[in-house]
């Protein structure tokens, strides 16, 4: 470990799915309070990297430290560390049998051992923060995609995470709902949350990211600032990728 202010340290990470090499020697350090955006073509290993950080995938080789603590295969430590890392999924993954507020309270009571009252208080606070306190009693199936994703963010925030991981949080949304989710993410970024976001929303990368990572074939090809990536990409593969996504 190099710098104690790096809240995420990934060292020489490899991940195989059978024969498929999803991660090919990835090393990465994320400073406390930094916002890192990961871009790259489909299948380049972006999700896999994110999912290794909270051990939803077990790395084949390599080490990860979260806030100075090494991720081992010990399930107790992993559960504890996961509670410190919020994750937001492309398809929201809300719990359909629970109302919005129950989605936000459940893990607080089960994992954090908070009382029902305290959990509900915090849940309402977070639902206000993402702008939908009035939907507290509504089931996910009666919420729009944008609203569902905001409940999912509130659910993660209610655990009081040190880190937030976003895996293409807006790519399953109708265009008119993308902004409401990005606004919540921008707020979070400006409040100093450490964030690692896989997203192709270049506007978000420009205005919120401290660093941008371009991945291809399981490797980090370029690791730079947003300006560096958009104005002065170094690698041919990066240029090709940017030309493809900026056309849209």
């Amino acid at each position: 470990m190099t710098n104690s202010d790096n809240i995420i340290v990934v060292q020489d990470l490899f991940k195989y799915f059978g024969e498929v090499k999803a991660l090919d020697g990835v090393s990465l350090e994320v400073g406390r309070g930094k916002v890192v955006v990961i871009v790259g073509p489909s299948g380049s290993g972006k999700s896999t990297l994110l999912r290794c950080i909270n051990h939803l995938e077990k790395p084949t080789q390599g080490d990860i430290w979260i806030d100075g603590e090494k991720l081992t295969h010990n399930i107790k430590t992993i559960n504890a560390i996961r509670a410190e890392i919020g994750m937001v999924f492309q398809l929201f993954n809300l719990f359909p049998h629970l109302t919005a507020i129950e989605n936000v309270t459940l893990a607080q009571t089960v994992v954090r051992n908070r009382s029902k009252e305290e959990a509900e208080h915090i849940a309402m606070e977070k639902l206000k923060r993402v702008g939908i306190p009035e939907k507290a009693a509504v089931y996910p199936s009666n919420l729009s995609g944008g609203q569902q994703q905001r409940v999912a963010i509130a659910r993660a925030l209610a655990m009081g995470p040190k880190i937030m991981l976003f895996d293409e949080p807006t790519s399953a949304l109708d265009p008119e709902m993308i902004k409401e989710v990005l606004d919540v993410m921008l707020d979070l970024a400006s409040e100093g949350m450490t964030m690692v976001c896989v997203t192709h929303e270049m506007g978000f990368a420009r205005s919120a990211a401290d660093e941008v990572i371009f991945m291809d074939f399981g490797k980090i090809v370029e690791h730079t600032t947003p300006e560096g990536l958009f104005n002065n990409p170094q690698e041919d593969r990066t240029k090709l990728f940017l030309s493809q996504i900026l056309q849209h």
Binding site: N54, N79, R82, I85, A107, M159
Partner: peptide, 17 residues
Amino acid sequence: GKGQMEAARSLGMSYGQ
């Protein structure tokens, strides 16, 4: 769906929970 278990685990819940 697999996403349900993953969402629950990502919040720190154990497999049993």
